[in-house]
Amino acid sequence: MTPVLTIDGVRVEASPGATVLDACDAAGVYVPRLCAYPGLRSTGECGLCYVSIGGETLRACSVAADTGMTVDTTNAEARSLRAASMRVILAGHPHVCLSCPERDGCSRDECTYNNPPEERCCGEFGRCEIAKVASYVGGLPDAPAYVHGWRGQTLDQTILFELDLCVGCGRCVAACDGLDEAGSALELVDAVVRPKAGDLRTSGCTMCGACVMVCPAGALTAAGGRGDDWLAKRRERTSLHERVLPPEDLLPFTVRVIEALVPAKEGVFQLYGQGGDTLLISGVIDLRAGLLRTLEGDVAPRACSFRFEEDAFYTQRESELLARHLQKHGSMPQGDVLEGLFDEDDDL
């Protein structure tokens, strides 16, 4: 039977056997995840996919979609649990570059803030899935710095294992499993991946590349130009599903992005903080100038990403978006300049 559920107020038909996370994917509603990957079984341990199901906060990847369920993916408790999980994950994975104001275009060779090289991000910087998910979920600034030990870097045939980067999500184990009778050539030991029998070949590896394609952490890579070619060829043959990433039109809130992508035109921008909280909805005569000004204002330290739309009737559009926000949340966006202006205190 086809389960029919309600996700964020919208009726969704899921395929039989789908998890709530699958149903969200089918509905085009993004829910963060690391251990889950479409079509693969997940360990259900990363703790990023929390949603509220009928008032209970649960991991979407571990609950079967069922008729009559009401799912709220924006639930506040769910979001704070996600952020807490993300902090735990980042405590075991280098991340200082991710929350750095200079992150765009930094080569990471010389650090303006003198972060030691062992704490800086790895070679996957810029395309890393963890970074994208982390900036969506939040939890970056107060995660303790992780010190990279550069232990256990091994090149097994074409696949490079960087054990310090592994977050133990188990995707690679699941991707390798079920490819043939032999089962997975990989296993997790103490939340770190390793070939079952010591090296890949004796573990039954067929060099299909699936594990490299699903790794969100840069722990399994096919490094260098030769590796890229190798991977590109294998990617064509793979039956893996596409990765599900945070929505793209959310742009990182940085000078570089604003200057490169935002026109000096009338419109409305929405600013988001950690976990997708709306901080600001603002209609301005010049989007670029408005965003750059906001970058220097009080909300900036709390802001992670933004979205903008051009609209000549920007004050009206702003009111529409505010109305939508108020009807959902019952208060103005939290980063509004008005915060703290309501308390009567004596005159000057």
Binding site: Q316, S319, A323, L326, Q327, G330, M332, F342, D343
Partner: peptide, 22 residues
């Protein structure tokens, strides 16, 4: 040119809002 309904608390903080269509 428009008509709005605003709900607010005892401090005048907006809690809900709706306006007429264009």
């Amino acid at each position: 040119q428009d008509c709005k309904v605003i709900r607010c608390d005892d401090k005048g903080k907006v809690q809900n809002f709706i306006m007429n269509d264009k």
